[in-house]
Structure formats: structure tokens, C-alpha cells
Amino acid sequence: MDRETLNAFVDGELPPQEMARIAALLETQPEMKTYVQKQERMRAALRFEDVMDAPPPQKLVETVRHAPASWRWRLQAVLGRGFVWRSLVPAGAALLVGLMIGLIGKPAEDLVLSRGQMLARGGLAQALDTRLASAGYPGQGPRIGISFRDSVGSDCRTFSSDNHAGLACHRAGNWVVTTLVTQSPEAGGAYRMAGSQMPDAVRRAVEASIAGVPFDAKAEAAARANGWAGR
């Protein structure tokens, strides 16, 4: 019998009948039996039983219990795994990110989930409806960045607040938030959106969806007058 078969026997990789046949055969073949026993001793030596029996270091346990978990995974847990990520967050958008809807901290009342879409509500929706970036920032509430028409004809606007920034597009009477990034806890207060700065993820989302150029002041006002109905 070749070594390959005997090794497979030691590793438990043979079909049950073959395992039984060889086990019986070993009783009549001392050399084979010696080889198998040596292999079994070697496997036993490699088992590192002290490591298996020792409680893992507390530091590792703490990491498992508390290290940040993927925000995309947590969002998927809410939205269902069929959710199409490419439309929500551009690949590689890494500024992140803990997301909303009660997944971290207190729920963001300005955002709701509806049929797999994230919609702006409350103060955010009001700002998107009414504020003109060209009129300057009134000093509180969400800040509106740029406005533009996307490739499917919707009017879209970027926004930011102390906690998050994103892109929302007006569809069927709602502001659908297609990209959202939140300030990561690690960044602490160091990362704070300045008026003209836009997180990479939002900027890429704009670049990926914009048709033409951003609205100028006149076009922005016209779009508002038109109820952000798009084309």
C-alpha cells in the first residue's frame, strides 16, 4: 500500500468502507501499522493542546467584542442582503462611517428607511426643499452644497451637517439619499466639514451621476421654483 493512501487514512480522508478495510489490514501488517502510529503521534504533537486549552488573551477577547463592525454589514442587516450597494456607495468609498437609523448612537430623525430606500425627512428634507446654496449658509441646520441634474433627469443636491454628509436626489416627491457618510468616531472633532469640502465618497457619487455641470445660482433658483421636479 502506498504512503499516499496511508496518509489519507491517518487524515481520515478515505471513504468509510476504505477506512474500515485499512484499519483491519493494519492488524496483519506491522510495518504499515508502525508507520500509521508514527503519523498519528506526529499529528498529536502538532495539536498545540496547551494553546487550545489556554483562555485566549483578554485583549483579543475585547477586540472581538468591541472592535468596530462593518457599517455596510449592519446596514445590510436592516435592508436585506439583496440591496444593491453600487447604487448607494461608490466602490472604495472609505471615509467612513457608521450609519444611521439607530445602528449607531441615537436615530437620525432626518433619515428614514422606506422600501429599501433612505429618504430625507424633517429638517434635512426642508433644507433640501428650500435652501439655496447661492443665498449663503444661514448658520444652522444642514448645509447645502451643489445642486445638479443627474443622468436620469432627477435634481440632486449634496448636503452636510455636523454629523454627516451625503447626496440626495428628488424622486417621486421624496429626497432619496443615495450616498451618506458620517463622521467616524475615531476622527473625533478633527474632521469637520468645512463649507466647500466634500467627502470623497460624496464627490465620487456626484461625478458618477451628474449630467453636465452643477447648477449656477439662476438654475438652482429655477429648479426650486419647479419643485425639484427635474426633467
Binding site: 502538532l46 498545540f48 487550545m52 477577547v61 472581538v64 463592525a69 449592519r74 445602528l103
Partner: peptide, 25 residues
């Protein structure tokens, strides 16, 4: 807060001895 995430973290704790052994090897 998130039961399934807790479950996964718990499973990971259970896996630590095997992961440690693998990493030491």
C-alpha cells in the same frame, strides 16, 4: 442592540483558540 452581530462576535470568541493555534503555527 444588534442580536445577530452579537451572535457573530460570540462565535468569533469561540474561534479564538483555533485562530491562535493556526497563527502560532
Amino acid at each position: 442592540m444588534d442580536a445577530s452581530l452579537d451572535t457573530i462576535r460570540h462565535q468569533m470568541v469561540q474561534l479564538l483558540p483555533r485562530l491562535r493555534r493556526f497563527a502560532i503555527a
